[in-house]
Nucleic acid binder design. Structure first.
Lengths: 73, 73
DNA sequence: CACACTATTGTTAGTCA
DNA sequence: CTGACTAACAATAGTGT
């Protein structure tokens, strides 16, 4: 189990694996953004759009929630 | 050397350590955003603003560079 | 499909130059 | 201040249920 080799920076061609990777890394990015905001007293906002249709919904994130969030509405 | 304990999700009060952490984690967030964009064929854009004045400049990131970048101009 | 697990790679806080 | 180093902690690709 576990990761086999190092991450190769290249589009994952397999649709299923790409979709799984998308969800896992989106969650990871949100966590990193939240930590940056809290630890370093910063405002962080981001938008993520899936191009290959792995996720039909656009995603946005803002921390602290009440500030940059308004950018996405 | 190396990290001593686990990350506590709380504002770093020491100004110098907070500033160093800000720069390191901003770089880390950019790398994660870039990886998400490439690996999962997505568009990612984010904005980071330092609240405590550790960094006077606002930061923005976009991948692929030619797309979401226009949001920040 | 989603979620839990874990080996393995990846990130980073403290440190030194 | 800036950048390199590295021990420890953290994220995650593949796997199993």
């Amino acid at each position: 189990m576990g990761r086999r080799g190092r991450v190769v920076l290249r589009r994952i061609e397999d649709r299923v694996r790409r979709g799984i990777c998308f969800r896992k890394r989106l969650a990871g990015l949100e966590k990193k953004a939240e930590e940056l905001a809290v630890l370093c007293d910063a405002h962080v906002g981001f938008v993520v759009l899936s191009c290959s249709g792995d996720d039909a919904n656009p995603h946005h994130f803002a921390a602290p929630a009440t500030h940059l969030e308004l950018l996405f509405h």
